[in-house]
Amino acid sequence: MNLVGLWAVGRVVGSTTADDETLRALWNEHAGPLLAYAMRLTGGDRGRAEDVVQETLLRTWRRPPEADPERPSLRPWLLTVAHRIAIDHHRARQARPTEVGEAALAGVAVDDDVDRALESWLVLEALRSLSQTHREVLLETYYRDRSVAEAAATLGIPEGTVKSRTFYALRSLRVALEERGVTS
């Protein structure tokens, strides 16, 4: 969905409903991956990350970027805005002498460039699009580093099912990534 276009519709109609729908669409499509990115920017602080997400989407809703046919996706824009907001927040906190330690702890330590961040976003989004059981099996096996036997015990399914489920989960993931243009 081209959200820049959607936003434009909202403006032309000028109705509160269309505006609300735009905001909802922005939220549904971007809030999840954006939160994950913001969590990186805030050193894992969920409260601060949610603030960054909120401000990023609010700014985008209020002043969306010019529609660019070359870059139909809003993501690079959103990532850049989120990054700047996180830095602004970080600086604002640093200005408070009593919280210097805390500020250093939650430093904006992200050297990812936008392309790299974007790829992570797409992977995350592809993972989100999987069925719950597929995502769960990858979480247990790959991310929590459990063997087939351990994952079988945790998930309460036979070992053979862990294997076949992993197989189909990876296959769905590959398709989901391909749909998002991630092929390498």
Binding site: G32, L35, A36, M39, R40, V123, L124, L127, L139, Y143
Partner: peptide, 10 residues
């Protein structure tokens, strides 16, 4: 490219 925590959050 993503962490366990990010997948859980997602």
């Amino acid at each position: 490219r993503v962490t366990a925590q990010e997948v859980e959050t997602a």
